[in-house]
Write a protein that binds this DNA or RNA. Structure first.
Length: 799
RNA sequence: GGCCGAGUGGCGGAAUUGGUAUACGCGCUAGACUCAAAAUCUGGUGCCCUCUGGGCUUAUGGGUUCGAGUCCCAUCUCGGCUACCA
């Protein structure tokens, strides 16, 4: 009796895979030389940030999904590319460096080595010759090249913007370093500091990013999240003249120009540049105080306290519709970053304006007729206009067009589209990031570092803390800072790029990771991209939107022959602790995948369990008991091949064998991994009942391989079989005798056995059904109607 | 507040096009093997009853249909994302 020893089997196969470079993808040239029929398949998971803690069970789930699919397509003899990489720039490594003095570069290398070792221990079918690392100069040279392309086209630009600032540590803080409005390190209340920063003009692609969402084979919730994030709204831009000053106008944006007759005051964002020009002497002190406080306010405070605040500027504007004088206020509920940073307030039909009017006792004029059953004080729906002069009685939708036309004719407004999405702020005053390839001349003008001087190497420093001027620790590399461009002495940019920039193009680097002449080889990208299957459980908007943005940009430049980077997106759920709570070190409920493997289960059990645990796209709770069931299943598979008790004629399980092959194949196409494993379990149960033929075992091992590749390889070796994915015979799916269900009035009353060849004879089926004793009991006289459905194997009698 | 998703046994879940609800696994339980235990194997396992049979059951209440977990309407509960976007 041989015993299933996963540790030994896995060691053996991992060594073989490593030595033979078993998962190396063919380049486009090699594939073409092999013949026209070879289809390509490019799969990837969202590459990990290699933390010091090593792989966690969430990684394992994510990678196991991609691995199962990669192996499935490999067994179908496609040319599969399944690469791997590391997203290594980022705050954790920098924080660790500040704390320990160990350079991020050194720590990152260690973490990568550990991740690689662990990924290999899990037996993933990775093409290790294509490994990439975003903090490797060979990689970030091309991240910088991408930046320069955006800079060249005017899509990378500088703008003043507020940044978190800790007045005690004298340092900028990343969002993650601000905890409830306080510095993560010293606990001081943080401030906002205005600094010049780099942005990518993603808004230039807002419409295309929005329009093409619908055509994507992505989960609905991600598509909706992206649409909401882009947040397109149509409306109008309207100029309000400031009273007693013919030269001053305030522009507002509104989606409801039809309510303009109800605009009883204007509100400006505290950052609005017009405030200083219009405020009266009397109001000046109060207004400036308010603005200063509001700008300092953290977003957290704004969220906590939704009570409206504000201050009157002392100035008035003229409502162009009514000709009436209306007061101009300032309030932080108006955001400078959206629309014009100013609104016309219509308190009768906007809840926020209503609250504000209530608090400061401002007039409310209804201009849209409320439906009779409407109970809310503030009606924001559609209806006929009232109190609106010549527009009275017009439906609000029509009035919008009419009023915009009138505004255009009068030269004081026009229709306009705005987006919630802002341009992407990419400056980070951090050390451990990709240097921005820019230098400044004496006058502070930015210049591109010439392409032949790339990469701008990330310099080593002694102290990783940002300096007190708000610059990153790169400013401490004094020699590095100096650069000569076209004979002119310049100073390098010390901001680094947001990590999302590094990950916005890595999928394309995979096709030619060693290419020294381009970010991606044009031939290879043409063959491999776009990515066929991309799998991850995070970044619903940020990363997945940025990749789409860069794809469109580089497509416009002619570098990419496609406009959407990811054909099919699989968005996997999290694995939680057995109590259903998130795993975290502090709670002490973390399951370490390596512990699970080493406890004797092995990688095959772990991987299969994580795919069996539930639908891949839903969260699941770890169960230390249930994983034992998967181990028992694999053990049964092992025994069928290595300790057979009896072999049978290969016809015995012909239906089950073909059904299982079909089921597992179809489940792969719809990513139903949990049900595919269940189908394999059913098949094994069947083989235990009926005995197994060699043909049964070969099919079992082949179908099992994407889930438990080591064990399946061992089985296939014993069976002297290749691993080519099995096909099935549609005709063999039907048994000789079929069970047909008989219902009376939709209630199950009997089951009859019908020879397969008689199944399609509905008259015969009906007769057989009516002849059943238990059916007769419920049918008195002639049935009203009989529905006989051979395909559903069902007869329903209406009595 | 807005948007999205989900509610099925003791538990994780299955039912893919409206057609046998509860596949598969866990747990529990009985038996075989064993001096015994573990492991393994075989069977049972939604609930209720007047138990060779029958009734009920997919969060709740209605509806459409020969037939509803699935479609429609209303209500409740939970989870996620987002958050003063004019």
């Amino acid at each position: 009796m041989k015993k299933y020893d996963p540790i030994k089997i896995e060691e053996k196969w991992q060594k073989i895979w490593d030595e033979t470079e078993a998962f190396k993808a063919k380049t486009s040239k090699e594939a073409k030389a092999d013949g026209e029929n070879v289809q390509k398949m490019f799969l990837a998971e969202m590459f990990p940030y290699p933390s010091g803690a090593g792989l966690h069970v969430g990684h394992v789930r994510n990678f196991s999904i991609v691995d199962a699919m990669a192996r499935f397509y490999t067994q179908q003899r496609l040319n599969v590319l399944r690469p791997f990489g590391y997203d290594t720039f980022g705050l954790p490594a920098e924080n660790y460096a500040i704390k320990t003095g160990i350079s991020p570069e050194v720590a990152t290398k260690q973490n990568i080595d550990n991740f690689r070792k662990q990924a290999k221990r899990l037996g993933f079918a990775i093409d290790w010759s294509r490994e990439i690392n975003t903090s490797d100069p060979k990689y970030y040279k091309w991240t910088q090249w991408c930046f320069l392309k955006l800079f060249e086209k005017g899509l990378a630009y500088q703008k003043e913007s507020y940044q978190w600032w800790c007045p005690v540590d004298q340092t900028v803080l990343a969002n993650e370093q601000v905890e409830n409005g306080h510095c993560w390190r010293c606990g001081t209340e943080v401030e906002k500091k205005k600094m010049k920063q780099w942005f990518f003009k993603i808004t230039a692609y807002a419409d295309e990013l929005l329009d093409e969402v619908d055509s994507l084979d992505w989960p609905e919730k991600i598509k909706v999240a992206q649409k909401n994030w882009i947040g397109r709204s149509e409306g109008a831009e309207i100029s309000f003249k400031v009273d007693n000053d013919d030269n001053q106008f305030i522009k507002v944006f509104t989606t409801r120009p039809d309510t303009i007759f109800g605009a009883t005051f204007l509100v400006l964002a505290p950052e609005h540049p017009m405030i200083a020009k219009i405020m009266t002497e009397n109001a000046k002190e109060k207004v400036l105080d308010y603005c200063k406080e509001a700008i300092k306010k953290s977003e957290i405070e704004r969220q906590e306290n939704k009570e409206k605040t504000g201050v009157f500027t002392g100035a008035y504007a003229i409502n162009p519709a009514t000709g009436k004088q209306i007061p101009i206020w300032v309030s932080d509920y108006v955001l400078m970053g959206y629309g014009e940073g100013a609104i016309m307030a219509v308190p009768a039909h906007d809840e926020r304006d209503f609250d504000f009017a209530n608090k400061f006792d401002l007039p409310v004029i209804e201009v849209i007729e409320k439906p009779e059953d409407e109970t809310e004080k503030c009606y924001h729906g559609e209806g006929k206009l009232i109190n609106s002069d010549r527009f009275n009685g017009v439906e609000s939708a029509d009035a919008r067009d009419g009023i915009i036309k009138w505004l255009e004719d009068a030269g004081i407004g026009k229709s306009r589209v705005t987006y919630k999405m802002r341009d992407w702020l990419i400056s980070r005053q951090r050390y451990w990031g990709c240097p921005i390839p820019i230098a400044y001349d004496k006058d502070g003008n930015p210049h591109a570092i010439p392409e032949d001087q790339l990469p701008v190497i990330h310099p080593e420093v002694e102290d990783y803390k940002p300096d007190s001027t708000g610059r990153s620790a790169l400013a401490k590399a004094k020699d590095w800072l100096k650069v000569t461009i076209d004979g002119e002495e310049m100073t390098r940019e010390t901001d680094t790029l947001d990590g999302y920039a590094c990950s916005s193009w890595y999928l394309w680097r995979y096709v030619s990771p060693d290419c020294e002449t381009a970010a991606w080889d044009p031939e290879e990208i043409k063959y491999w991209a776009p990515t066929d299957v991309y799998c991850g459980g995070d970044h619903a908007v940020a990363h997945l939107l940025y990749v789409r943005f860069w794809c469109k940009f580089f497509a416009d430049l002619g570098y990419l022959p496609f406009r959407e980077p990811v054909k099919r997106l699989l968005y996997n759920g999290y694995i939680n602790a057995p109590d259903g709570k998130k795993m975290s070190k502090s709670k002490g409920n973390v399951i370490d995948p390596l512990d699970v493997i080493n406890s004797g289960y092995g990688a095959d059990t772990l991987r299969t369990y994580e795919l069996f645990i539930g639908p891949y796209n839903e969260d699941a709770a770890w169960s230390t008991k249930a994983i034992g069931g998967v181990y028992r299943f694999l053990n049964r598979c092992y025994n069928l091949v290595f300790n057979p008790e009896n072999t049978v004629d290969e016809k015995v399980n012909i239906v089950a064998r073909n059904k299982t092959a079909k089921k597992v194949t179809e489940d792969f196409h719809r990513a139903g991994f949990n049900t595919a494993v269940a189908a394999l379990m059913e098949f094994v149960n069947e083989l235990y009942k009926n005995g197994a033929s060699e043909a049964d075992l070969v099919v079992l091992a082949k179908l099992l391989k994407p889930f438990a590749p080591h064990l399946a390889s061992e089985m296939l070796e014993e069976l002297k079989s290749d691993d080519e994915w099995p096909t099935w015979d549609e005709k063999a799916l039907v048994a000789d005798v079929v069970e047909v269900v008989v219902q009376v009035n939709g209630k199950l009353r009997a089951k009859i056995q019908v020879p397969a060849e008689e199944l399609n004879d509905t008259d015969k089926l009906t007769a057989l059904a009516l002849a059943e004793e238990n059916v007769k009991k419920y049918v008195e006289g002639e049935p009203k109607r009989v529905i006989a459905l051979p395909k559903a194997k069902l007869v329903n009698i209406v009595a």
